[in-house]
Design a binder for these strands. Structure first.
Length: 370
DNA sequence: AAACCGGGGTT
DNA sequence: AACCCAGGTTT
């Protein structure tokens, strides 16, 4: 069999399989480029099952690109809460405003224009063009890299950008005439449902008979991917500052900076300590916490009493947080700080929280009611 | 090329 | 505990 025959058999076999087993997903019920776009941004590094409820809520609240462009940023962030990679949400809204201003509210159709939208890289560009417009552009994500590496028995390191570019050229050649939308989704569906990372179901694979990786017994060794570094642990003390008087029942929280980790999310005020030894001794944390918040103009008195403890795991970082009970010295002054606010159980849901602070504060407010 | 950017499910 | 997920941006 020639290479060209193998390529056309691959496409035909995959398409037949996909049309038989494709999952009924919310964004597959539409070809509206806005729906496709939002789903693809949400699906970046995020599983289908996780995205479904977020996608439905988002479309309910922001049904068109115009609605998204007009919304307050905090409203968008709130609808993204818990999904992670929050710059995706800010970039998406920024790009929605660009579509309204530059393209009259109509999604662009050319590769250059789509690729120029904030938060839209090579994969998402190909996904939008192929799925919404059936344009013959490749959409190479982690699934597709794994499937193609196995099927063609390619041992290039998929962590390298050059490998992804090569696979995009290959994936483009594989698209059957006029079938870009279904073919690209079929490739990803195969990677998600059959050609899975650890133990692929080769006996159920529609193209398993033609898979070079499997024929050489290497399906479990592919794709080759260099390992990521381990997450670095950091140690922090947070302050649980309970209000009194007019702030009774409320807790002092603050908003994170505009850029960087967890940008513009809300949190308990906290500081980092140099190492685990310092973190093991809460008494040593008291002056560090007091002085750290004083730099923001927030004067508090901290105690050794532990109000909670939590761990927050990021891709490259692990936060270990001990929460110390504390009191504010100038409540009214503190309340006037822009980045700081007193928040009670009633206002809690008006803010977007990283999961670790959502858990700690929910625990506190529940305990408070008893 | 490498680092940064969440959160959760699987193995 | 390691790996992965419908990746993109910044350095």
């Amino acid at each position: 069999m020639s290479i060209e025959e193998n390529k056309s058999d691959f496409g035909a076999g995959l398409l037949r399989w996909y049309r038989r087993v494709r999952r009924d997903l919310p964004w597959r019920r539409s070809r509206d480029p806005y729906h496709i776009w939002v789903s693809e941004i949400m699906l970046q590094q995020t599983r289908v099952d996780t995205v479904i409820p977020y996608f439905n809520r988002f479309m309910d609240r922001f049904p068109t690109v115009g609605h998204l462009a007009e919304a307050p940023e905090e409203d968008v962030l709130k609808h993204w809460e818990g999904l992670g990679y929050y710059s995706r949400a800010r970039n998406l809204q920024s790009a929605a405003r660009e579509v309204v201003e530059e393209y009259g509210g109509v999604m662009p159709r050319t590769k250059q224009e789509v690729a120029g939208l904030k938060g839209v890289g090579p994969y998402t560009t190909g996904a939008i063009l192929s799925i919404a417009y059936n344009q013959p552009e490749p959409a190479v994500d982690g699934n597709v890299m794994r499937v193609l590496s196995r099927y063609f028995c390619l041992e290039d390191d998929i962590a390298r950008p050059a490998t992804r570019i090569g696979l995009e050229e290959l994936a483009k050649e594989l698209i059957p005439e006029g079938e870009a939308a279904d073919f690209n989704q079929a490739l990803m569906e195969l990677g998600a449902m059959v050609c899975t990372p650890k133990s692929p179901s080769c006996t159920e694979c529609p193209v398993g008979e033609l898979c070079a990786g499997r024929l050489q017994g290497k399906e479990r060794e592919l794709p080759v991917k260099t390992k990521a570094k381990k997450a670095r642990p950091v140690f922090r003390f947070a302050a649980l500052i309970a209000g009194t008087g007019s702030h009774a029942g409320k807790v002092l929280v603050r908003q994170r900076p505009e850029t960087g980790l967890l940008a513009r999310m809300w949190e308990l005020p906290h500081i980092e300590v140099p190492d685990e030894e310092a973190w093991d001794e809460p008494a040593a944390g008291i002056p560090l916490l007091e002085d750290g918040l004083a730099e923001d103009g927030v004067r508090i008195k901290a105690t050794e009493r532990i109000a909670g403890e939590a761990q927050h795991i990021f891709t490259h970082l692990v936060w270990n947080i001990k929460v110390l009970e504390a009191a504010a010295l100038d409540e009214q002054y503190v309340a006037d700080r822009t980045a700081y606010r007193w928040v009670g159980a009633e206002e809690f849901e008006d803010y977007a929280w990283p999961n670790v602070f959502r858990k700690l504060l929910t625990e506190y407010f529940i305990h408070q009611i008893k």
